[in-house]
Simulated scan of single mutants.
Amino acid sequence: MHRNSQSRALPKDVTSALVGRHLLATPEWNISLRSVWHSIVAAEQLSFHRAASVLGTDQSVVSRKIRALEDQLGVSLFERNRAGVRLTRAGKEFINQAKSALSDLDYAVKSARCAGNGSRGQLRIGFFCSLAAGFLRQLLVEFARAHKTVTIDVSHGAPRDHIQQIRDRAMDIAFFTGHPELPDCDVELLWHERVFCVVPEGHPLGSVEAVDWSRLRNETFIVSHDEPGPEIHEYLIMRLATVGFHPKIRRLAVCRESLIHLVAMGFGLTLTSESTIATPFRGVMFKPICGQTDVLPCVGVWSPANDNPALRRFVSLARALKTARAAARPE
């Protein structure tokens, strides 16, 4: 058996949290964990004297605690002689089971503490933007690298669905664009993304560095029926519609990826956010809109009643990343 004295001390997590308490409190027995641990060390050392040396206490203390434990159990755990001690049949059975129980208990204490401080657990994240590049991608990568024991579940979907899941405690935090009014949730602006126009290769706008809205008035736009189609539709109306003029916008029952492929096929132009442009799409070009106000606020939303420690750590990292990116931005 291993006789390293450092390994013989009662595990710190068990000692600090449970010594002086009881494994169970029943009318039948009431056993001290320290007495059990003294017996385990004595069984490994085959000597009360050596066990006392390993434990950093007096032999009389070890002998007294083991004798009290035997009295409580109603059996002898050790045969004592001048050469030392050895386990009885009942002692072998007890020590084997006690080792397993203490190991399980130590693991339970450590697991509870990890879950309580956010170093282990689960984090459920909803998002609607692209993860190809940008703030959210960096945030997820850095958090996952720093918290390898936290299981991260991500869900792509519409903001309205994610907000309800946050209220139902089925999701911890969600990210989307805009400034939603949610009195029952914490909403924090974390980053901005520029708006880009998606044009097919060979289009006249492909030769310009940035696109002005005046050059888009006579273009046909395509948007999806589902999110973010309605949001893009509203954005186009806000930027292009005037008295007596309404932009040409077609709503199609396709996903965002298919929409960009349809742009390449000549069905029309569309808009997207900055994080999307890192994804390679054949046959299209991404041109920034040159208006200074054409940036999208991106927020994180969570419930203030959510006590998930992993969420608190995630929000703290998001705030730190926001500060770092702001400091690195050129004046």
Rank of each mutant, 00 (worst) to 15 (best):
residue 225 H to I: 03
residue 199 V to P: 08
residue 209 E to V: 06
residue 276 T to E: 14
residue 285 M to L: 15
residue 283 G to P: 10
residue 212 D to T: 11
residue 289 I to C: 10
residue 265 M to I: 01
residue 257 E to M: 07
residue 246 H to S: 14
residue 223 V to F: 06
residue 261 H to N: 15
residue 255 C to G: 05
residue 251 R to N: 01
residue 282 R to T: 14
residue 258 S to T: 14
residue 264 A to C: 09
residue 288 P to H: 06
residue 245 F to H: 15
residue 254 V to F: 03
residue 249 I to L: 03
residue 272 T to P: 03
residue 245 F to T: 07
residue 287 K to A: 03
residue 244 G to L: 04
residue 270 T to E: 08
residue 276 T to W: 14
residue 288 P to L: 05
residue 210 A to R: 13
residue 285 M to Y: 01
residue 224 S to Q: 01
residue 285 M to V: 06
residue 251 R to D: 04
residue 243 V to Y: 10
residue 229 G to N: 03
residue 263 V to R: 07
residue 243 V to N: 12
residue 253 A to N: 14
residue 241 A to L: 06
residue 261 H to K: 13
residue 245 F to C: 09
residue 194 R to W: 03
residue 214 S to Q: 11
residue 280 P to D: 13
residue 237 I to D: 05
residue 277 I to Q: 03
residue 234 E to Y: 04
residue 270 T to S: 15
residue 266 G to L: 13
residue 249 I to H: 09
residue 269 L to V: 06
residue 247 P to R: 15
residue 220 T to G: 02
residue 221 F to N: 00
residue 218 N to D: 14
residue 210 A to Q: 15
residue 224 S to D: 00
residue 282 R to P: 01
residue 197 C to A: 15
residue 254 V to Q: 03
residue 238 M to K: 13
residue 260 I to R: 12
residue 246 H to W: 12
residue 270 T to A: 09
residue 205 L to W: 09
residue 264 A to I: 03
residue 231 E to T: 14
residue 279 T to P: 00
residue 237 I to K: 07
residue 221 F to H: 10
residue 292 Q to D: 12
residue 276 T to Y: 15
residue 257 E to L: 13
residue 211 V to F: 04
residue 249 I to E: 10
residue 204 P to W: 07
residue 259 L to P: 02
residue 285 M to A: 11
residue 279 T to A: 01
residue 236 L to Q: 03
residue 198 V to Q: 04
residue 217 R to M: 05
residue 260 I to Y: 13
residue 274 E to R: 05
residue 291 G to E: 15
residue 263 V to K: 08
residue 243 V to E: 14
residue 200 P to G: 11
residue 241 A to D: 02
residue 227 E to P: 00
residue 239 R to L: 15
residue 280 P to S: 12
residue 257 E to N: 09
residue 203 H to C: 00
residue 275 S to H: 08
residue 196 F to Y: 15
residue 205 L to S: 10
residue 291 G to T: 10
residue 226 D to G: 07
residue 203 H to V: 00
residue 293 T to K: 09
residue 262 L to W: 13
residue 293 T to H: 11
residue 267 F to K: 12
residue 195 V to Q: 00
residue 259 L to Y: 02
residue 227 E to I: 00
residue 253 A to V: 01
residue 280 P to C: 05
residue 270 T to W: 02
residue 212 D to A: 15
residue 227 E to M: 01
residue 290 C to T: 11
residue 236 L to N: 04
residue 204 P to D: 14
residue 273 S to A: 13
residue 256 R to A: 07
residue 251 R to M: 08
residue 275 S to Q: 13
residue 216 L to T: 02
residue 276 T to S: 12
residue 207 S to L: 04
residue 211 V to I: 15
residue 220 T to E: 09
residue 280 P to M: 10
residue 279 T to G: 00
residue 278 A to I: 13
residue 249 I to F: 06
residue 234 E to I: 05
residue 247 P to T: 01
residue 231 E to N: 08
residue 265 M to H: 15
residue 245 F to Q: 08
residue 269 L to C: 09
residue 214 S to R: 14
residue 271 L to Q: 02
residue 243 V to M: 10
residue 209 E to K: 11
residue 273 S to C: 00
residue 288 P to E: 03
residue 265 M to T: 01
residue 267 F to W: 14
residue 244 G to I: 05
residue 198 V to N: 03
residue 284 V to K: 09
residue 209 E to I: 00
residue 216 L to Q: 08
residue 204 P to F: 04
residue 282 R to A: 13
